[in-house]
Amino acid sequence: MVHCHNNYCHVVPCLHCHPHSYIRMVQHLIERCLLLHMNQQQCVKALAHYASIRPCITITVWRELEKENKDFFRAYVRAFSSYRLFMGRYIQRKPSLERKKQYWKH
């Protein structure tokens, strides 16, 4: 299968013809999702939408990565939870900061 994006064509491995290459590609895409602070559900949705990877494959590869890297994923989940908590507080606080800016203008 050939996938073209921004006038660049990439050969995407076939799950049936080259399963090892396909799984490595999915693993690489999951790692990119982790860099973007995505959880498993967000990653599954993104890969299904943007890379046409079936959710069952993404979940299977994710679970295997978790098995092989238990400490990393434990730390990632903790950091991800803290990040989400921080961003939630920031988003809740932002409107009050906007109100204060309005008072400064008058």
Rank of each mutant, 00 (worst) to 15 (best):
P13L: 05
K45M: 04
L47Y: 02
W62V: 03
L97F: 08
N6Y: 02
K105V: 14
L34F: 02
K45V: 07
N7P: 03
F86E: 08
A51W: 04
R63C: 13
R24C: 08
I59R: 15
N6F: 09
V26T: 03
V12M: 06
K101T: 09
E64G: 07
K105C: 06
C9V: 05
A79V: 11
T60R: 15
N39Q: 01
L36Y: 04
C4P: 02
P19V: 04
A79H: 13
P13E: 01
A75N: 14
R99M: 14
W104K: 04
I59W: 02
Y83D: 06
R99F: 12
M25T: 05
D71Y: 12
P13A: 06
H106N: 13
L29F: 03
M1K: 14
S82T: 10
S96G: 01
V11S: 11
I30A: 01
M25K: 05
Q27M: 10
H16R: 08
A51D: 05
S21E: 13
Y90C: 13
N39A: 06
Y90K: 12
A46L: 13
H49M: 11
A51R: 06
L85S: 11
F86H: 11
H28I: 00
C17H: 11
E68M: 11
Y8G: 00
R54I: 01
L15K: 15
P55G: 10
R32P: 00
R54C: 07
L97K: 11
L29C: 04
K101C: 12
Q102W: 09
Q92E: 08
C33I: 00
Q27C: 13
V12S: 03
C33Q: 00
F73K: 07
V11L: 11
N39K: 04
N7G: 09
G88H: 09
I23Q: 14
Y90D: 01
V61P: 07
P19G: 04
E98V: 15
W62I: 02
F72C: 04
V26M: 02
H5P: 00
R32C: 10
S21M: 07
L34C: 00
Q27N: 14
K105I: 15
H49G: 04
L34N: 01
R84Y: 05
H37W: 15
Q41F: 00
P95C: 04
Q40K: 13
M87W: 07
K70A: 13
A46Y: 10
R78C: 09
V77Q: 15
H49S: 13
S52H: 08
C33E: 00
I57F: 08
M87S: 06
W104G: 08
P19N: 05
S52N: 10
R63Y: 09
C4N: 06
R89A: 07
H18Q: 08
Y103S: 10
H16E: 10
H18M: 02
V2Y: 07
H18C: 10
I53C: 05
P13K: 06
Y50A: 09
N69L: 15
T60I: 00
L97I: 04
Q92H: 07
Y90R: 10
A46H: 12
H20A: 11
K45S: 06
D71P: 01
N69F: 07
Y90H: 03
E98N: 08
S81W: 06
H28C: 01
Q40M: 12
